[in-house]
């Protein structure tokens, strides 16, 4: 089944689900499916249990941090300046809010097919970072979702044991986020050479 077929089936059979194809422009052309965050669990159940798909194996869970970014547009407009009509360039800045993305790679061992790549976005990257856990569907996602929780700070709702897995309890940062900075005096040697005469 092609990705487009999977997408239209999802929209038809999972009520309320919105799925879109994210095109990968590289030679591998490994396109992926972006699922809206409220239907992650239902979608996963459908993909695993559908007799033609049988995506029974989740090989990989990872995450991507998309920080806020700024886009500048230059618009040419005609304006009257000192009584003369002139063409003026205006730059308009828009901030596109960032989000955290989680990526699942699914295979079908029964059908010998795959991978089908699923993506989901959080609402933002500050206070609403919750996504549905797919561990109840694929047990293999358990530790990798913990890793995404630990390093990116994505909260998986419905995860049986959501604790940090690599960093220790009591650590408060999420080091794989783009805006993570280590403590300033972590690298004393670098500090010593970058401060001449200190």
């Amino acid at each position: 089944m092609t990705l487009e077929e999977i997408r239209s089936r999802l929209e038809a059979f999972v009520p309320g689900c919105h799925a879109e194809i994210v095109v990968n422009g590289s030679p591998s052309a490994q396109n992926s499916l972006l699922i809206d965050r409220r239907h992650g669990l239902q979608t996963a159940m459908y993909l695993r249990d559908h007799p033609e798909l049988q995506l029974d194996f989740c090989s990989n869970v990872t995450a991507v941090d998309w920080p806020d970014r700024e886009e500048t547009e230059t618009i040419k407009t005609r304006k009257i300046v000192d009584g003369v009509e002139k063409e003026v360039e205006e730059t308009k800045k828009t901030t596109i809010p960032g989000y955290l993305e989680v990526v699942y790679h699914l295979f079908s061992i029964a059908k010998k097919e795959g991978p089908v790549v699923l993506r989901m976005h959080t609402a933002n990257r500050t206070d609403d970072v919750t996504l549905q856990s797919l561990t109840p569907v694929w047990r293999s996602a358990e530790f990798q979702e913990r890793e995404a929780f630990d390093l990116f700070g994505i909260v998986f709702e419905g995860h049986p044991d959501l604790r940090r897995i690599l960093m220790w309890e009591g650590f408060t940062d999420h080091p794989m986020r783009k805006d993570y900075v280590p403590p300033p005096d972590d690298d004393l040697e670098l500090l010593a050479v970058s401060k001449p005469g200190a």
Partner: peptide
């Protein structure tokens, strides 16, 4: 000891 941002003390 394990601190909030790293080891305490750092050295």
């Amino acid at each position: 000891e394990f601190g909030e941002h790293g080891l305490e003390p750092q050295q």
